[in-house]
């Protein structure tokens, strides 16, 4: 790969967005960052990652938070900012990577080398995937789906101007249920080739 490439994947819970990200990371030989970003940050700052994971991808609690001169007592907000800064630093250093979630489509919007994608899915397919992956009943899967999507939406919309899942914020919005995870990844790769040529 000759030029820097960043692929940002936003996703609905159960849409297979993470699998799409894995396929793309393998295809381009790039690191994939999701919650493993926290492990890297924890190693870098010499702290226990367990202290951080419970605050990951969570919105700030409005009732129990306060800001003073740009400082916030919210661990969730501080952790989100650490991750955003870390991603920006990686992008500044010229690193190519695939990033799942973490508001990357907006945080890294200024980098021309970024392709932003949102993966969505049909409810029955998402329920089927979640039931199979986590070994839960469809009813439990529905609960997990609603909870996780709500969490992601609130988290995203707190830190970003653009709304989570709104197609206007992403270069591509693809329903993975219609063509499957593999074909979705291929479609994104085709778009990347079209956008940047054969150099990537």
């Amino acid at each position: 790969m000759n030029q820097q490439l960043i692929i940002s994947i936003g996703r609905e819970f159960g849409s297979g967005g993470h699998e799409v990200a894995e396929i793309l990371a393998a295809r381009y030989g790039m690191p994939l960052y999701d919650n493993n970003l926290l492990h890297e940050i924890a190693t870098h700052k010499n702290v226990n990652v367990k202290n951080l994971t419970k605050y990951d991808e969570r919105p700030r609690n409005m009732l129990f938070s306060r800001s003073v001169h740009g400082y916030s007592n919210s661990p969730e907000e501080n952790l989100a900012k650490i991750q955003f800064d870390y991603l920006r630093r990686k992008a500044d250093d010229g690193e190519s990577f695939v990033i799942v979630g973490r508001c990357a489509e907006e945080i890294l919007a200024e980098y021309g080398c970024m392709v932003s994608v949102f993966i969505l899915g049909d409810l029955p397919k998402k329920l089927e995937r979640v039931s199979k992956k986590y070994g839960v009943t469809p009813a439990e899967a529905r609960g997990m789906l609603l909870l996780n999507d709500k969490k992601r939406k609130v988290y995203h919309n707190y830190y970003c101007k653009g709304k989570w899942g709104d197609s206007r914020n992403y270069e591509l919005s693809i329903n993975s249920s219609r063509i499957g995870v593999e074909k979705t990844a291929e479609l994104i790769a085709a778009y990347i080739s079209e956008k940047y040529g054969r150099n990537v």
């Binding site: 940050i41 924890a42 010499n46 202290n51 661990p75």
Partner: peptide
């Protein structure tokens, strides 16, 4: 707010 924020930004959330 400032003290807990400085700690959290260095990976020590409170």
């Amino acid at each position: 707010v400032v003290g807990t924020s400085v700690a959290a930004r260095e990976g020590h959330p409170i």
